[in-house]
Write a protein that binds this DNA or RNA. Structure first.
Length: 471
DNA sequence: TTATTATTTTG
DNA sequence: AAAATAATA
């Protein structure tokens, strides 16, 4: 049996890799990565600088790891739907093994690849592993899909009889001799027209394993409280590893569960279930990437206003947490989750701008930018998603800052104009002495919180109807 | 059994 | 208010 193991950018590892283990157990193995112009065309790559840097580093390490195991990663440019069937025929492969992706465009890609391979009698086998449980397999008592997180999480927990993660192969068979190859080198960041950014997380499976160990030995104890603190390193920082599969979600789950961290561990596993929920939702409702889940939000009168949009993007709204989030995103491709929520709430509610603009901006600049998680997070924040925050709940960016960045360290780090502001007003800089405000250059707020809040409530009430009186 | 209604729950 | 489930006819 000769198998192509098709690595595809969401499983850049050798540990807990079902297709690799299966291929190695059944005979000859040809590891393949396709540089699809869908992602790697220079104009596309320039649009995704942070993700591209992490991906290329992970890919280079994967190639080295596979070489160390006695195999070799073949990197081929071209459109997946064309390249994979052609190579399978050229290499006389019996089967192509890969991990299933949940996104609608990826499912279409796989459907077309499977059809083309099938015409040549080559099997295409998609393995689970992107999620803890197969999307669509977690059902309500009435056999429907869950639309509310907590019952979904309960149903997941009831059947999380996960197998132990698969060990990495200790050896792989060499590439079949005499294979016609047309490979290229893994491109560098610079070759794609990007400037390397040393502030980004380091890609690769080894760095991911290191981050997992550091989290389990460190911030996990105290996660329940620490995860909300924007000024502390209280979160896992594993989102990019989960996005690119340098860690499998099952590996992360098992490591945290085995740490027996009590309530802190459960709090983190709950976050993994939010990721799980977003993937299962996107599988059931592919239109979530373009449409609000709640039909009442169709045609919502989002404003079109380039001035406030640009202020939000560049971190010049005059609200410190919102601006810190914006600048952290552009600088290091990561934003603390609470700052993400505050920034998203501010864009959609205070500025009344379409959540899809923010969603696209975050997807472009986040190293961990993941279609399912990003989309469901933005819809949740905007109030139009599955089990979303009710639309009449509006984050107060000042209160959020005072509570979860009490010393102002987070906002001062990312908004240096605030360095000299007294802590008492670092989240309300308009209350600082006028001379300090003038000298710092930090902008006045683009909207007044109370007025913006009232404007959103009026707009939403007119479009969506009365809010619930209770709840 | 299954459809309907009541109750509980809800990031 | 809406979803999920439990209770009931």
């Amino acid at each position: 049996m000769r198998s192509i193991v098709w690595f595809r950018g969401k499983d850049l590892r050798v540990a807990d890799h079902g297709p690799l283990v299966e291929a190695a157990a059944s005979g000859e193995v040809i590891p393949l990565f396709v540089l699809d112009p869908y992602f790697f065309a220079p104009e596309r790559a320039r649009d995704l600088p942070h993700r591209m840097q992490f991906l290329l580093a992970s890919l280079a390490e994967l190639a080295a790891t596979l070489a160390g195991l006695g195999s070799r990663l073949l990197v081929v440019p071209g459109r997946s739907v064309e390249v994979v069937p052609r190579l399978a025929a050229l290499w006389q492969a019996d089967q192509v093994l890969a991990h299933r992706w949940v996104e609608p465009f990826a499912r279409e890609r796989d459907r077309r690849v499977a059809a083309a391979l099938g015409r040549d009698g080559v099997a295409f086998r998609c393995f689970e592993g992107e999620t803890l449980l197969p999307p669509g397999s977690v059902r309500t008592g009435q056999d429907g899909m869950f639309r509310v997180f907590t019952p979904f999480a309960r149903a997941c927990s009831a059947r999380l009889d996960l197998q132990a993660p698969l060990a990495a192969p200790r050896r792989l068979p060499p590439l079949p001799p005499g294979l016609p190859v047309e490979t290229v080198a893994i491109p560098t960041v610079a070759a794609l027209g990007l400037v390397p950014n040393p502030a980004l997380q380091t890609g690769g499976e080894a760095a991911g394993q290191g981050r997992l160990r550091a989290f389990v030995d460190g911030a996990l104890a105290g996660y329940g409280e620490g995860r909300d603190r924007m000024d502390q390193a209280g979160t896992s920082r594993l989102s990019a590893d989960l996005k690119f599969g340098t860690l499998s979600v099952r590996t992360v789950w098992q490591a945290v569960a085995a740490a027996a961290a009590g309530a802190d561990g459960r709090a983190y596993l709950n976050e993994l279930l939010w990721r799980e929920f977003s993937h299962h939702l996107l599988h059931a409702w592919p239109e979530l990437l373009t449409q609000p889940f709640r039909p009442a939000f169709q045609g919502f009168p989002w404003r079109e206003d380039e001035a406030t949009w640009t202020a939000w993007v560049e971190g010049r709204t005059g609200y410190p947490v919102v601006d810190a989030a914006a600048r952290q995103l552009l600088a290091e491709g990561f934003v603390h989750n609470r700052a993400r929520m505050v920034a998203a709430s501010f864009l959609t509610k205070h500025l009344l701008l379409d959540y899809r603009r923010g969603e696209a901006h975050y997807l472009r600049w986040l190293t961990d930018g993941d279609w399912a998680a990003n989309s469901s997070g933005w819809q949740w924040s905007a109030g139009c998603g599955c089990d979303a925050q009710p639309w009449f709940r509006i984050f107060n960016p000042v209160a959020q800052g005072q509570r979860f960045d009490p010393d102002g360290a987070y906002v001062r780090r990312w908004v240096p104009e605030l360095a000299a502001y007294p802590t008492a007003c670092v989240h309300e800089p308009w209350k600082a002495p006028a001379a300090l405000q003038a000298q710092s250059g930090y902008p006045a707020p683009v909207v007044v919180h109370a007025l913006a809040r009232a404007r959103f409530l009026d707009t939403a009430k007119a479009h969506l109807g009365r809010p619930a009186l209770l709840y």
